[in-house]
Nucleic acid binder design. Structure first.
Lengths: 415, 415
DNA sequence: GCTCTTTTTTTCGAGCCTCGAAAAAATACT
DNA sequence: AGTATTTTTTCGAGGCTCGAAAAAAAGAGC
């Protein structure tokens, strides 16, 4: 089952810890690293000297801010941007976006492309992804060998091993092992992530104050997705990416959901559901394929303008989200929530019914404490999350070698 | 945030690993331990020699089973039963049960007692617990100093730090810091656990084949509880024991629940709910305080006997459980389920509606795969779980000292 | 301009820990 | 009794972290 700690693991882990400390803090001095890691100054000195020698870290200017201090000035350590690069591939409805990011986290090359993902044959979809990655890798500004890892994100369900997309609303095709495909094609380790999980990862890096050990990112878009961090760990299902908050049951035998079932939270709170209710089409009406952001904004404007079916549609969305969150909170206790996506811009219309519903649930014990944040634009978040995830893998695997890992999966059984 | 690995941690962790390997395997040889932990023979030899010298492990007879083998026979290592003892305290509705267990896991002293927990004043309830523990500690057969840890379990919500009961259906009183009270009284480290979590822990030890990394234990009793193991880890909420499956919302604004809210799963599947529906009392009827096991068995018999309100009551329970499980599975993916408690004996009446409901949900994708096990008697399981939990603490803390832990809580911030 | 103080960083020896190889131990086979 | 086989122990080598002390690099004071 669990495996003993070998002697050589020690250095590897502590190297990884130093790299992680530098990535988090930006430009910490050796003394600061010693404080945050709890290791001795001598150890930090030895490890950072190694890492600098290997070109992974670099000494930057002495820290100027507090130059009032006496004594030898601290020397800031920073990541060497040229040590490596990673690539992010974000595949969403009718849209493909790729970026190359240096080791310090700066975008150095990117490309975006519209495609008709819903009608595209399987091979074309895969081909488009491979082609866009190849174009970026062949970018003359870039040294191909420096791209150490690729992180893909897709709306939909991925497997826990982060190899394949199992199901996605953006395409009728299922079980596409994107990670394996890209690995075979380019020989670069790749992982396939769920978009909402990447949102959560990004939020954690963006605002570690608010999004620390426990929080929830909910995507309010055409569908409803969730990324969940519990006790500092990204939460995934046992076999798939899990966290399919949008398909928790709000109303047994209720409204028709895009997934073909009935009564899911999404069937009340997804863009298509809000649209359907606002147009008073009835809960059995087949979900429309897509509602433009502009249409959704118009809907929200109409709802704000006057009482009517639009406002009622947002109310119903809030109620479904509230009861869903209440059930979730019964399982995990309340935590800060970030609402992301177009409908997050209409959260003022959603919030009252949501809070009312959540107060009816066991999880909503102290619903006044529960705080919501909104972020209307999901794409940058997803990309940022992918970038950080890929960089973290590079930190752990490439620059702290020796682990029994392969492609992001820590193997549990060694015997 | 995360802390570097000090040099002395190494030995401590590997000692703990060896102890854990012996506890799991029963009588493994040094060679077997080396294989399961991945450590070298020399290391295992050194560590086990230390542990034997400290009286924690003991060499037992050479393993006889496969005595056909050539070569030096393996020497089995086992836990020294006298190395320590732990105490379990299980507090359930109108019932208090205490046992002392030796380091090898055998019960060496026990006592059970009926009390009227629902009407008892706060101090009396606490006093009864303290008194029964004192009586067991003063048992002449027992060396007091050898009791190294106490694990309490209670039906209800506990805090993540495992110090206090926050809320429980068995008493009107709230926020009783049982762990602190016993620690102060007897100077023995104590933890306060949730009963269903202990059931899950016990199932894992009882049948590691079936209940390994991911599974669910559901208590079908007066209330509905859940213990959840995900990726080999006991799942708890961010602040409380969490996993309040019984209070996920099945039907917004639905049947009246014991918790005062409406539409919880428990309001359809708890004993009182089945009773209420079987008696056709209406969903707004105030839940009864208790239904005897005999009454529940009679109800099940009547339901099996003929179509009627009893059978319909079990159907409704199954539906609520099914939709609830479906929502849960949407979050975590399906996993093996153990149904525990009186109504688990009536699972034949519950299962059809449960499976039908779960098939209507996203989490019930392949509902035919989902397997259920039943165990009508929860008390032994809870006690077993407490014992293993307490013993594991002793393994980790007492016999592998140096960790920055206190009373079961691993401190995350060292700086 | 020089010395003293303060703080950061590096150096160095001590003490552990794990590992691999070889030796020792304990049994079955012939 | 001797040989083969398997388990367990022994022993030296190599690494790692740690604490103390030294070195380095500034500001403060005169």
């Amino acid at each position: 089952m669990s495996v003993g700690i070998r002697h050589d693991d020690l250095r590897r882990r502590n190297r990884a810890m130093v790299i992680a400390a530098v990535r988090r803090a930006g430009q910490p001095s050796r003394t600061e690293i010693a404080a945050t890691t709890g290791l001795s100054h001598s150890t930090i000195s030895a490890i950072s000297s190694d890492l600098i020698g290997e070109g992974i870290l670099a000494e930057s200017k002495p820290i100027e801010a507090g130059s009032l201090k006496r004594g030898r000035p601290q020397v800031g350590l920073s990541l060497n941007a040229e040590a490596a690069a990673v690539m992010t591939v974000v595949l969403s409805l009718n849209f493909l976006s790729v970026a190359v990011i240096d080791y310090a986290g700066q975008v150095i090359s990117e490309e975006q492309r519209r495609l008709d993902t819903l009608t595209m044959p399987r091979d074309t979809l895969i081909g488009e992804c491979v082609a866009i990655v190849r174009r970026r890798l062949e970018d003359p500004d870039l040294d191909v060998r420096s791209v150490a890892r690729i992180a893909l994100a897709i709306q939909g369900i991925t497997d826990t091993r982060a190899r394949a997309m199992l199901w996605s609303p953006i395409t009728p095709h299922t079980d596409i092992a994107f990670a394996d495909i890209l690995e075979d094609e380019f020989g670069i380790p790749a992982t396939m992530e769920n978009d909402c999980n990447m949102m959560a990862v990004a939020l954690r890096w963006r605002d570690p104050q608010r999004y620390r050990d426990d929080f929830i990112a909910i995507l309010l878009s055409h569908g409803i997705g969730m990324g969940l961090v519990l006790k500092g760990q990204l939460f995934t299902g046992t076999h798939s990416s899990g966290g399919e908050f949008g398909h928790m049951i709000h109303q047994p035998k209720g409204a028709l959901c895009r997934c073909g079932r009935r009564g899911c939270v999404e069937a009340y709170a997804g863009n298509y559901a809000i649209w359907r209710n606002a147009r008073q089409l009835g809960e059995d009406t087949e979900p429309v394929a897509d509602v433009s952001d502009a249409d959704m904004r118009a809907l929200a404007a109409a709802a704000r303008d006057s009482e009517g079916p639009e406002r009622e549609a947002y109310r119903k969305a809030g109620e479904a989200l509230g009861y869903g969150l209440g059930s979730l909170f019964a399982l995990i206790d309340p935590a800060p929530v970030a609402m992301v996506g177009v409908s997050a811009a209409a959260f003022d219309l959603i919030e009252p019914a949501l809070r009312e519903a959540i107060a009816q649930t066991a999880g909503g014990q102290h619903s006044e404490w529960i705080s919501f944040d909104t972020e209307p634009n999901e794409l940058p978040l997803i990309r940022e999350g992918c970038a950080m995830r890929a960089l973290t893998f590079v930190d752990q695997e490439i620059f702290a070698p020796g682990a029994q890992t392969r492609s992001g999966l820590v193997s549990k059984n060694v015997a």
